[in-house]
Write a protein that binds this DNA or RNA. Structure first.
Lengths: 220, 220, 220, 220
DNA sequence: CATGAATGAGTATTCATTCAT
DNA sequence: AATGAATGAATACTCATTCAT
């Protein structure tokens, strides 16, 4: 029986406590500075048990990370489905709003992603970053391709460049909800919902002017 | 005699070795996980000596950080001066190209900045981030304000939002030269110079369409 | 579970070895110069384990110190009770004999007290000295007060001065059993029991002449 | 040329600064915790020079200690000569007052002596303690012997015991001017001169009652 | 002779991991 | 299966001593 299988057999209550504590720990301290000791103390579970469930600290992190990726992936899939009939820029707007709402619900998960992105010092980093590619690779690229096919986007644009730009702006917009300094005085961090909606609106208008086809597709 | 004065008296050769090693170490591991032991081993310098030069690990980091900020600041000042008579978007183009070239010359310095941004747990973080604000606060904001005054930018735009967007796109564009994953398949990472020039051109065109005034200011 | 609780669960054999080694170390070197490394080496116990048991070096010292104070306090309480019906000077004699016998049984404990007294540079010194005051404050002062009330002591004496003198002489007499030099050639250090009894007798006679009431109280 | 000879050739001004700083350092921190680094910094003299003058930290301490012993010895010799014609208890009184005044003038020297007495952990301790014996051995013993020969002291007393007792009480009385805790609430520490004189008087009266011959020698 | 840079073994403390119970 | 005691290599930092300048 593999290590994580052992974990899966635990009572849901216990599993959730472990997951919540570990997410919190990794979000707060990153991988190396996270302390299994502390997680054991906070969950009230024996250190030895954690190692039985996950083998190593890395195993625990893998599990938490996969868990987080799965959450995000589910969220994206849902947004994709729910907005399938919308105009390209409406979908971007919905995506951003969904992103903000996801971050507010799971504040630590985005932080783990950011920690991962800029901490090179742990061995399995590349493997993890592959999994994160999903945002632009699985989500954004098809969305842009469809947008161009539908005539929502200017036909002369380079798909890669559009994806890159959208990824940059959207990611930064979301980062600004976790990392105060990054909001460039725009007051995004923990802004009230109506203010966020306004900001998203402005941002999407700006994107539409830069990327949108001259005459709107008329749909919607 | 203060600690760093002692360092300044060393032979240039030795100083450079220490600086290079320390930059590499902090870029790779961030502040907390960076190891003075390792730096001593890698430079071949006694641990005690490093502490004589810089007092503490924090002192060493401060020195390296100030060194980096100074490099960046000088670079920005030079670009600003050299492009004073250019149109707003030309200045952005020049800035990006200068940024890319700076990163290629000092590959680890941008990484240190990124580490700082997303590692929240060390004591003097805020103090250091203040120093970094200079990019958007001292550099970008005045540039945008002048751009609007000159009629290069659309007059109805919100300065904060423009700064935020430029900062996001430019920062991400530069990040993509340090963090392979972030280039969104655009192939920016270590791309040959001509390719970079093309990418910068496309990006600036896109920005001009989104932000530029209907009729160009005529200057240049 | 607190740190010291962990220690208490160890096998008695191991606990004793640790306590004995630590008492020896602190007696020999005082607090600052005592080395946890050395204690680990001498006990054959991993350094990490000692820190699991006591948290910090200070924690270890606190434990040892409280242990010592408890031993002394128990001893004093016992002597007090057993001599309750004796004449004042008999009680002093009994106290001295009990002190000598205690020091012979626990040779390092008195040394720790002396180290504390004259090493001023560690942080929690005052807190610990408060605990030691018990000898003169809790023990000697009431004893002298009762002695005066019973008419064993000359009524014109100042209580403070008597306590001071008794404390000085008795403390020095006991010190002379730890610190060879202090016996002033009187040969007290590790003297055979019968010689100690003689010395104590002479000392008490001297005290009685200096402090005793002209006509003995008649009791006993 | 020996190490200390090198020191002796320095300008008096420099020598005094070094001696004063070293006395202060050893009094404050004891031998092991004293830092040559700190002394070098405080004197403004290069660390290397201190080692040239004294060879090792131990050599420096030896020098300081001998210096201190010489000061004390000179003081005792002077008191001895000046009180040669006094009654025994008057000499004790004079000695105590001289001791208090010496401690007030050289507050750190007595502290060094106390540190030495109770710190066993340095190699040359016994050698140093031999030198301190002088107080009871060279000073007090002859004084007591003369006192008995002159009939100031009761003839049935044991010289060693008298020396021991006097040493204990007088030493403790002086300690109480350095170590607040030891004054047993008698308020000796930094007491005003007139109060000290009163305390000394009471103490000597007490000693006279305990040790003095029934009928005073009539001398003086 | 004076200097102070260089050294390296020393300090307390942490923590992922193992393993006997 | 669960536990938590034991481990030891790692961390930042200090300091007496040496030695080339």
């Amino acid at each position: 029986m593999t290590a994580t299988e052992r974990f899966q057999r635990l009572k849901p209550e216990k599993k959730e406590k472990i997951v919540a504590t570990a997410i919190d720990e990794f979000a707060r301290y990153g991988f190396r500075q996270a302390s299994v000791n502390r997680m054991a103390r906070l969950t009230g579970i024996a250190k030895g048990s954690l190692f039985q469930y996950f083998g190593t600290k890395e195993g625990l992190f893998r599990f938490i990370f996969d868990h987080a990726v799965e959450l995000i992936r589910r969220n994206l899939r849902r947004v994709k489905a729910e907005t399938a009939d919308q105009d390209f820029f409406e979908r971007i707007r919905s995506s951003l709003l969904a992103g903000v709402s996801f971050i507010r619900k799971h504040p630590h998960i985005y932080q783990i992603y950011l920690k991962m992105l800029f901490q090179e010092d742990f061995p399995f980093r590349d493997e993890f970053l592959q999994k994160i590619r999903l945002f632009s690779a699985e989500y954004l690229t098809p969305l842009v391709e469809k947008g161009m096919a539908d005539g929502d986007l200017r036909p002369d644009l380079d798909v890669h460049l559009v994806v890159f730009t959208l990824d940059a702006v959207m990611d930064r917009f979301l980062q600004a909800h976790c990392v105060p300094f990054l909001d460039g005085n725009a007051g995004l961090f923990q802004a009230p919902p109506e203010r966020v909606e306004k900001q998203v609106g402005d941002l999407v208008d700006f994107l539409r002017r830069g990327l949108g086809a001259e005459q709107p597709s008329g749909r919607r």
